[in-house]
């Protein structure tokens, strides 16, 4: 319970700092500044990784429901989907494969010898 409160306060502080930064210098969205500040504070040791671990994993595995209000917006785009649905899917699938091929070839050439074990974050 104490760690849950710790995580909530930590995230709130970082988000508030993100909002200040966003209104001062614009650039990135407030939540992204908040994310980078959160990472930075963990790196500096100002926040304790072990204390945020559990609550943080819970937030990430449950955050999907927060996307629903934005995604339901397709309700206003039936016309667009009727006219351009195929074009949209073709663009997405084509560019996704271009990206996968490009990163795959470069990583195979320049990084495959540096295999270092990494752990899965989430």
């Amino acid at each position: 319970m104490k760690n849950i409160i710790y995580t909530i306060i930590a995230i709130s502080i970082c988000l508030t700092a993100g909002k200040l930064l966003n209104s001062a210098i614009a650039g990135l969205p407030a939540s992204l500044y908040g994310m980078l500040i959160y990472c930075f504070f963990l790196q500096l040791g100002w926040l304790t990784p072990d204390k945020v671990h559990k609550a943080n994993q819970w937030i990430i595995s449950h955050m999907g429901v927060c996307f629903i209000p934005a995604a339901v917006g397709v309700i206003n785009h039936f016309e667009l989907i009727k006219n351009y649905g195929y074009a949209i899917v073709v663009i997405i699938v084509f560019t996704t494969f271009v990206l996968i091929t490009f990163i795959g070839l470069l990583a195979e050439k320049y990084l495959s010898t540096k295999s270092e074990s990494v752990t899965k974050g989430y």
Binding site: G18, A30, G34, M35, L42, N56, I60, E116
Partner: peptide, 24 residues
Amino acid sequence: QGLNALLEPATVALGYPLYQQLKH
């Protein structure tokens, strides 16, 4: 809008996996 408001703090939480990956 309550759910939508939670999107911002949830995005901040992604700073933790970012921190974990940077180490590696």
